[in-house]
Design a protein around this nucleic acid. Structure first.
Lengths: 253, 253
DNA sequence: TAGTGGTCTAGACCACTGG
DNA sequence: CAGTGGTCTAGACCACTAT
């Protein structure tokens, strides 16, 4: 009644949101059941459900079938640094492992695919290869922390560069990872370019990353250039937005 | 019927999604009305609505009261470059104007606030100032392209630095913008740090940026460091995720 | 005005969780 | 088992957009 003409579902959402923001419903706590809300406000259960859904879409609430609705609890952020390609880390753990350890999480990496594949158009444009044929080697990995999937990372390397190297093997690519092999092939990483965007996950990503409603993904399109300014590798990172951040440090001019 | 046990709303969503992805429902086109869908599939209208809502949350569809439901049409992306602070652009149009012109859009900037304010905790930590008092100058701007709001940008400068300069004026800050004034004050921008995250907008941002459902924001927390590695300015960018991208180019090592 | 989505009701039954 | 959310029905009326 407080705001004229305000739909009941929004009013309920607004009051619950307030309780979440001021801490009377702390992160991780359970909301009143939908039937309880309905009777308290004297509305139909569908209307209470609608209110919860509004909060879910804002990323404030997660709904759990059979258990209840809960205030979303914050989880530690994995910070991908812009310096993650720095040679100072060569020989050590991979950037993802480093970040997980920093956050006190147990990393795991799963290989999704290693094959010769047709690159998507955006990747083909970055690598200046044909998008209509199997012009690239594709290496796709799935990254987990504490067995929760956080990232899907797919690297494309022009087939003419990758052909005949250990990169085409599903098993270990050897010392210093793929960049070690690419150096042996004559491509030294000199500069990189990254384009960052944000969007909602598609159905497949939602499944792969077990993304709850109200959670976007970060997409990073990365390109590596060698000493001749030739792009020799491009990678698409798809990151759960609520569990990943990106950190860039730059000199000016 | 094709998939056993699949809820009707998801089945309808799946079929419409397919039509969107394969182009039989191109960007900008109108979907069948909810009542039409309901009668075609022999379901209740609420169920058809639910199907549309699923697509809306994926960012595929926008709903327009009184008009209809439409496939979301792509709009040009504003790309904020990591070099936007480069001195090579001093004296010219601001980075936002440059990007708009590149994309064929008309820029407009509106001042939301210029005042002495208590900084949020994350900003206070970056600037190493007190978050419990009015220790900063706040300058908040609203950026539009073709009269559509795209960005809300809020800059915080330690009050001890900003005090007595033109920065505290609501009007023009003068040549080369705020960085010109900060240089005069003895702070040369040498390095910057940016942390990028993605999340759903809160109610206020949704309103300010007129963000449709199924659209996340990009949040960039920017810090500038001077010749003594002192952070002298921090800015929070909140960007409509469907209209903005970030571009970083780095040298390795 | 007719056609669209926005919201709501008062039920119903199913599916999942936990003791 | 009881309690939770997941989904659905068959309406109803309101609010907005177009003509």
């Amino acid at each position: 009644m407080s705001t004229q003409g305000e739909p009941a579902s929004r009013k309920v959402a607004r009051e619950l949101r307030l309780k979440i923001e001021n801490g009377s419903l702390p992160p991780g706590s359970q909301l009143p059941s939908e039937r309880t809300i309905a009777s308290q406000y004297e509305i139909a259960r569908t209307t209470a459900t609608e209110a919860i859904r509004l909060l879910e879409q804002e990323g404030l609430v997660v709904r759990m079938h059979g258990k209840g609705n809960f205030v979303r609890s914050e989880k530690p952020l994995i910070r991908l640094g812009g310096d993650r390609y720095s040679k100072k880390f060569r020989g050590g753990p991979t950037p993802f492992r480093r970040e997980c350890e920093k956050a006190g999480l147990t990393p795991r990496i799963e290989v999704l695919a290693v094959d010769r594949a047709q690159p998507p158009e955006d990747i083909a444009a970055l690598l200046r290869v044909d998008s209509g044929s199997k012009s690239t080697l594709r290496r796709s990995n799935h990254y987990f922390a504490n067995d929760e999937p956080l990232q899907v990372v797919t690297t494309y390397i022009p087939w003419v560069i990758a052909e005949g190297t250990a990169l085409t093997q599903r098993k270990q690519v050897g010392k210093d990872g793929i960049y070690g092999r690419l150096e042996e092939r004559g491509h030294l990483m000199m500069t990189i370019s990254e384009e960052v965007t944000s969007r909602m996950p598609d159905v497949i990503e939602k499944e792969l990353l077990q993304i709850p409603a109200g959670t976007p993904v970060l997409e990073v399109l990365h390109t590596s250039f060698d000493q001749d300014k030739v792009p020799f590798e491009a990678t698409r990172f798809v990151l759960r937005g609520d569990r990943n951040g990106l950190l860039y440090q730059l000199s000016v001019d």
